[in-house]
Structure formats: C-alpha cells, structure tokens
Design a protein around this nucleic acid. Structure first.
Lengths: 122, 122
DNA sequence: TGCTTGATTCGATAACCATCAATACAGGGC
DNA sequence: GCCCTGTATTGATGGTTATCGAATCAAGCA
C-alpha cells in the first residue's frame, strides 16, 4: 500500500485503452468491465466523488463518517476502487490517505467518448 | 419498444449530469451507478461496442451469433442496456434493430472527466 | 388459421456481492 | 511491553445477478 504498488500490471485500465467504437476483444472487455463495475455502486461513486472533490489527498477518517455504513464496509469499497486502479493510498502513521490515480478517470472517459478526447488534444 | 419510449424520465443519465469532482448526492450516485453498472459486464460492453462500431443501427440477429451465449441471455443484456438509457431499439417486422442513444456515452464520459468536455466545447 | 422465424419474458439456479461483527494488522505513546 | 486508535481483512449472511431452457409474444407467409 504505497505509491509504488499500483503499477501498470495492476492497473486494469492503463494496460489497454480501447475505444467502444472499435470492437472489443474478450480480454479488453473484461478489463474495462472490471473498472466500470467498480463505479457501478452508489457508495463507491460517492467515495470517489469525495476524494476527487478535495485537492490532494483525503484521509479515510474523513470519508467514513460521511456514510451511514460501518468502517469495514467503507474499507472494503476503497479496496475495490484501488483494485480497479481508480484510487491509490498511502499510510502515514495511523492515518491512511487516498487520492485519485492521475489520468485514470480520463482514460475511462476516453473509452466512452474518444472523439471528445481527440478534440481536447488538438 | 419504440423511439418514443426512452424519454428523459426513463433515462437515468439525462435527468442529471453531475461531475465526480462535485460531491454527489445519494440520488445522483444511485442514478449514475446504475448506468456504470450496466457497463460493468464484459458481455454488455462487447454488445455496446458492436453496436457503436456500426454506422446506424444493428439487428439483434447480427449481435447474437457473435457470442457463445444463448439468445435469451443476449436479449436480457440488451434489455439492461436499454434500461440504463445507453441504447434504444425498434422492431421492424420480425427483426429488432438497436442503436446507441445519441449523447448517452458522451454524458457519462463528461461525468468522469468534465475538463475534457469543457475543452471540446470551446 | 396454422406454421415458422425472430425476439422478449419467465422462472429456476448457481455464482456473485454489499454489509456487518469479529478479528487482525499498523502505528503511536507511555 | 502494554494499551490505545485507526484501518484492513475475514467469514457469515442475505440480497443481487448472469445464465439457461421453457414459455410467450410479434411478425410474416401459405
């Protein structure tokens, strides 16, 4: 659980960045589906939103009280977001800080709407 | 099952288009999560990809043979994509044609990466 | 009207998953 | 070393979902 632990081999998105307008292979579809599935839960979306709306990093101790769920549940959801390559975290003493993996959301967005990304890169 | 049946009241995305960088309400998160959950299955992603990669509309009879799944399973997945507001369909005689709902994927992409959309609109 | 083809829906089933309490792990202070 | 706080993991549980075969619906044709 450090900055080095999320490598491209672990990031299911960075390994491939196809567009939906090109036919997906079974492997590409599985990798992308895993990322979207991570977003397919309201709690995880709200966690992601809370993390994304703060500049820099957010401590778990700030995230957990925002939900009427148990601490293990929040931890479990954060783990799924990590495994999906959308967030990363670092422990500093007792506290654990989370942040959005740079470019992860943009890459997913580009899959859904490749023309939009192509336009912005000009 | 016609062009008129997918209205904004039925489309879970069009009703709201927040950005992840703004804190999501419980309702917004539920609506968005439903759309992402529809994408969170490899079969549905590949179906969406096949539909998106064809200009115009695609007949179910072309989609089903591309998978090693039963026809009811493909039909079930297409229904989930319809309910998520990502595709729509129309029956013409025996055949049923599907297409991507215009703007649906772009709106989802904008949730993930609002700066990208803002740039392309300039 | 009866039969055929294509597509959707239904119901059962096994696999998957969100949630919790309990437990384990990580770190800090005395 | 002991105790405390914070966080992650474990295992059980009830709810959800992908898949299939059967049934139903929709349309076309003789």
């Amino acid at each position: 659980m450090s900055n080095q632990e999320t490598t491209e081999a672990d990031d299911p998105i960075a390994a491939c960045c196809p567009a939906l307008t090109a036919p997906l292979s079974t492997e590409q579809a599985a990798a992308l589906a895993a990322a979207f599935k991570a977003l397919g839960d309201p709690v995880r979306l709200r966690l992601l939103s809370l993390i994304a709306s703060q500049p820099g990093q957010v401590c778990v101790c700030e995230l957990t009280p925002a939900f009427e769920l148990s601490q293990p549940t929040i931890s479990h959801h954060l783990k799924l977001l990590r495994q999906a390559g959308l967030v990363d975290c670092e422990r500093r003493g007792t506290w654990v800080y989370y942040w959005i993996v740079p470019g992860a959301l943009e890459r997913l967005a580009a899959v859904l709407s490749p023309q939009t990304l192509a336009t912005s890169s000009r």
